[in-house]
Every structure is written in structure tokens, then in C-alpha cells.
Amino acid sequence: MTAAQADLRTDRVERADDVSIEPPSVADGAALWRLAKDSGTLDVNSSYSYLLWCRDFAATSAVARDADGETVGFVTGYVRPDRPGTLLVWQVAVDARHRGRGLAGRLLDALAARVAAERGLTALETTITPGNTASERLFASFADRHGARVEREVLFGTDRFPDGPHDPEVLHRIGPLAL
């Protein structure tokens, strides 16, 4: 799919089902931390890190807001310094009240489209621990929607984590993307 001129605006807000998708602001940091904590599956970073993320990586992240303006989902990512056409997705979370409606997929699609329009994008990467079926389905579905293949390899084995037992992190490289 090709971005139309109107789609190239960086301040664009996408709306569907009374949920808007837009870049985060520092004011969203606490909500991101809460959503990560409440997910029950994500590694929760310090609240400070989410504040920094919303400040320094807003251009490569997105939040979903409900009709009342509450942050109900997010995706955080960054462009890899050694691969400027690759967006690494760090975390995706959706509030329990909004799950099962495709919001995580819409967040990924909106973020990928925005990054592609602003910087060019040929691939998306993420890591998923074995057995995280929901994340595997989310990213496989993203690959299908964008005509891309998925390559997998262990990025960090269990022996790399100094803070106790941790499942391996499997890198999912999705590309080339048709955005």
C-alpha cells in the first residue's frame, strides 16, 4: 500500500471505534508503565524509563486513546542505528477492557505507516519469548497484512540474562514490508 500525501503528515491522528492512535507525549509515561505492569506478561521497566521513552522515542512509538482521552494501549519502538530502515518494536500493550478488538494490530499498522512515511521502512523486528502465542499471532498477522515473510532466530539465550531465569528472546524479523 502506498501512502497518500495526506498520510504523510506526522501530526496525524488515526481514529477507529472511538479510539485514536497518535505519538505519545511525556504525559503518557505513567499510563504506559501502568499498562505494562497490568499486562501480566511484559517485563516492566522503571516508570522513569517510560517517561524517557515518551520524550525521546515518541516519533517511533504510538499510543491509543479512548473517547475520554485515556491511554488504553501503546507500542514502543526505535529505529535501529545500524539498520535505519528497521523499526524494532520493544513493547505492545492494550488495556484489558480493549483487548480482542484488533487494537494491537491497528497500533502496529499505524506506527509502521507513520515511520515509513517519515523515514522509510523496509523491516520490522521484535523479540518474543517462546510460548507467547498472542504476540506470535500479532506479528505473524502483521507480516501477512504487509506481504512480508518472518525469519526467526534466538537473539538472547537464557544464559545472557544476569538477573535470574529468563526465557530466551527470539528475534522475529519481518520484511521486506509493503507499506
Rank of each mutant, 00 (worst) to 15 (best):
L124C: 06
L124T: 09
G29H: 03
R149M: 14
R15V: 12
E153Q: 07
P168K: 10
A30I: 07
G73E: 02
A67K: 13
G147K: 01
F74T: 07
R97V: 02
N132Y: 07
V170H: 03
S20G: 10
R160A: 11
L121D: 04
R152E: 08
P130N: 12
P176Y: 03
L179I: 13
A31F: 03
E22A: 13
A117F: 07
V13Y: 06
V26M: 08
T10H: 10
P81E: 11
S20A: 09
A143H: 03
V170E: 00
L88C: 14
I128M: 02
D66P: 03
D17W: 03
L103G: 10
D95H: 15
A148G: 03
L108A: 06
L138F: 06
L107N: 09
G120E: 02
A148F: 04
L179G: 08
I21S: 02
T133K: 01
A31G: 06
N132K: 05
V92S: 02
K37M: 15
L124R: 10
A104Y: 00
A64G: 15
S49M: 11
G100R: 00
A110N: 09
S49A: 15
R160T: 15
D163H: 14
A140D: 04
G40S: 09
G147W: 00
Y48T: 15
A143G: 04
D95G: 08
D82W: 10
S46M: 04
V94G: 04
A58T: 12
L42H: 02
L88W: 15
G157M: 04
G40C: 07
V115G: 04
R99A: 05
S135R: 00
A64C: 04
A140W: 00
G157E: 13
A113R: 15
L155G: 13
